[in-house]
Design a protein around this nucleic acid. Structure first.
Length: 597
DNA sequence: AGCTGATGACCCC
DNA sequence: TGGGGTCCCTCAGC
């Protein structure tokens, strides 16, 4: 292997020691050569006082691991004194002392032996080998977060029934639970329907949004309309029945659009909560919006005072929009006046983000909230005040989402950043511990939209949920991140759907309220999935390419496949790229024709 | 192809 | 309680 010579060795030493030398060691570098620390160092003449430099190369990359392991302990100790990890991930060992002019100094030896890029220790390497990711064995399992094994050997590795941690069985003891078992439970079918899994991309808009997608919402009555929000605050309205009919409204919010809800009495109107601190109500026909709340009327006064709106839901019976901010407060908006009503109520730890709100579908005054204080909390909106929660559901990390089951409203499903889905089978029963925990890879990553497990609103047994997977799997040579369908009553993985052309992670997923359709947002693109037999594959790549894709079984390449937009695949039809200015024009022209659907 | 930037949770002091 | 360092299987643009 051709070794990479550290770039600073190519520089003349005088330049190297200049205080204005235009480079620095990476911030992550923990061990620096002694000479970089001596700020008070006297000027040096390179010929007389600088030690000789010896480069020790890892010439044989096939060197046996046992050999490396034997050497490792010694190297580690020496590393503490004078080792350097360079940007190319190789260890350089600097030995001082062989210069005859300087007593006690040996020559600087630079070792280019490979080290693990995760823990910086030699003897193993972490990272992608082709499409398979090799974990660093020094770290806890990436999936279940427990030490002693890696993801590859994790007992919770997503397959069937391995991820479930059942709560200890408890007998029904509370009167409410008794009532539930007698009256409500019989209404929930125990025999599960045959799931129709939307597992094939039916149509898509590639690079529809200019930033990553943050939320999705199906139109309550028009079956082919999908709303999407993005990190920039833009709101997309796409008629996926007529693939080319799509609008992006860019003037509603100025940053992240966190949540959307249709107004139940008027399905042209949609409320949206944004990190710009406003709750807006937008007419989808005209694109005209009005702010119901603006929490930052005085503009930017610094990050400590800037308020953002996250969780949001509508209580139609009371005519209320409930929206929560990043300081732990709940705000109420009267839909008739479109103005704030009452004072903000502290519902989560002061100063923590409240990322999710959900009104119970049967009893809308029962509110479920979740947030960064590691709790999901149940409230009665009729008597809500700070500290008045009915139940506090503890989690080990941030709770990305908490939803009541869509039909009976008696179950709760939460997604937490500790890589676990939690299910409470009955809000009338024991709420101290979840009924089940399902280990599932949906890690937090600051560059991704947080994962949220979503119920299938059509499943009468209330046991099917969909959630994107963070961790990748090697599928015929491509590292893909599937979307998982999980039977939350057993923890079983019902289906994992993926497409070789979707190489990005898909954290945002929503199942259609009436049809066997899954909408997913991955990076800046939207996908509509249907069950295989119903699919007629058509994909549009926004104004730069028209592509057609289906469920191909073969794809060769390294991690994530290649990024060539599949130009090696004859199902892709390329169109010449248009300029950025035309892109804007296109969006504007689409906005003027929005009244059609 | 390899670098860069955007930028959230969490931990420690 | 707040600031700074660290974590990191991202993604897209150059």
């Amino acid at each position: 292997m051709e070794t990479h010579r550290p770039h600073f060795l190519d520089l003349p030493f005088s330049f190297l020691f200049s205080p204005r030398a235009p480079f620095s060691f990476p911030a992550s570098t923990t061990h620096r050569p002694f000479f970089f620390f001596s700020s008070s160092m006297a000027p040096v003449t390179r010929r007389t006082s600088f030690p000789r430099v010896i480069i020790e190369r890892d010439s044989d990359s096939e060197q046996s691991s046992s050999e490396e392991e034997e050497e490792a302990p010694e190297e580690e100790e020496e590393d503490n004194d004078d080792g350097v990890t360079t940007e190319n991930g190789k260890t350089q060992k600097l030995e001082a002392g062989s210069d005859p002019n300087r007593k006690g100094k040996s020559p600087i030896t630079i070792s280019l032996k490979k080290v693990c890029k995760v823990c910086k220790k030699p003897g193993h390497e972490a990272g992608f080998k082709g499409a398979t990711y090799i974990d660093c064995p020094m770290k806890p399992c990436f999936l279940c977060k427990k030490p002693g094994h890696t993801t590859l050997t994790c007992p919770h590795r997503v397959s069937t029934e391995h991820g479930v941690i059942p709560a200890p069985h408890r007998k029904a003891s509370k009167p409410l639970e008794y009532v539930f078992e007698r009256q409500l439970r019989p209404a929930i079918p125990t025999i599960k329907p045959k799931y129709m899994i939307p597992d094939q991309v039916h149509c898509a808009v590639i690079r529809y949004h200019s930033r990553r997608v943050t939320c999705l919402e199906f139109h309550p009555t028009k079956n082919n309309i999908l709303l999407s929000g993005d990190k920039k605050g833009q709101l997309g309205v796409w008629d996926f029945g007529k693939i080319h009919e799509k609008v992006v409204y860019g003037n509603i919010h100025s940053c992240i659009l966190n949540n959307m809800r249709f107004v139940p009495s008027n399905d042209c109107m949609v409320y949206s909560a944004s990190s710009d601190g406003t709750l807006s109500c937008t007419d989808l026909e005209t694109g005209i919006s009005s702010s119901s709340i603006n929490l930052n009327p005085d503009g930017w006064q610094g990050p400590n005072t800037w308020k953002m709106l996250y969780g949001m839901d509508i209580n139609f019976e009371k005519g209320l929009v409930l929206v929560a901010d990043n300081f732990g407060f709940l705000h109420l908006v009267d839909m008739r006046s479109n103005h704030k009503t009452g004072d903000a109520i502290l519902i989560h730890k002061k100063g923590s983000k409240v990322v999710g709100l959900h009104c119970n579908p049967i009893q809308p005054e029962i509110l479920l909230s979740c947030g960064n204080d590691h709790f999901a909390r149940l409230w009665d909106v009729r008597r809500i005040e700070a500290g008045s929660s009915l139940f506090n559901l503890e989690h080990k990390r941030v709770v990305n989402s908490a939803y009541f089951s869509p039909i009976s409203g008696s179950k709760i499903l939460t997604t937490s950043q500790d890589n676990r889905l939690r299910i409470w089978d009955s809000i009338f029963g024991n709420m101290d511990t979840p009924s089940r925990e399902i280990v599932h890879s949906h890690d937090f990553n600051r560059h991704l939209t947080p994962f949220k497990a979503e119920w299938d609103p059509k499943d009468p047994s209330e046991s099917l949920a969909v959630v994107g997977r963070y961790i990748s799997e090697n599928y015929n040579g491509a590292a893909l991140h599937p979307i998982d369908f999980i039977d939350i009553s057993t923890g079983q993985l019902v289906a994992e759907v993926m497409d070789p052309n979707i190489t990005t992670i898909t954290p945002v997923n929503k199942l259609h309220p009436r049809d066997d359709i899954l909408a997913s947002g991955s990076s800046r693109s939207l996908f509509i999935w249907k069950p295989k037999e119903k699919s007629a594959p058509v994909v549009e790549k926004d104004e730069s390419k028209i592509v057609v894709c289906g469920r191909a079984e073969k794809k060769r390449g390294k991690k994530g496949g290649d990024d060539s937009d599949g130009s090696d695949d004859e199902r892709f039809i390329s169109k010449p790229k248009k300029s950025k200015s035309k892109k804007t024009e296109w969006k504007l022209s689409q906005c003027t024709t929005k009244g059609k659907h």
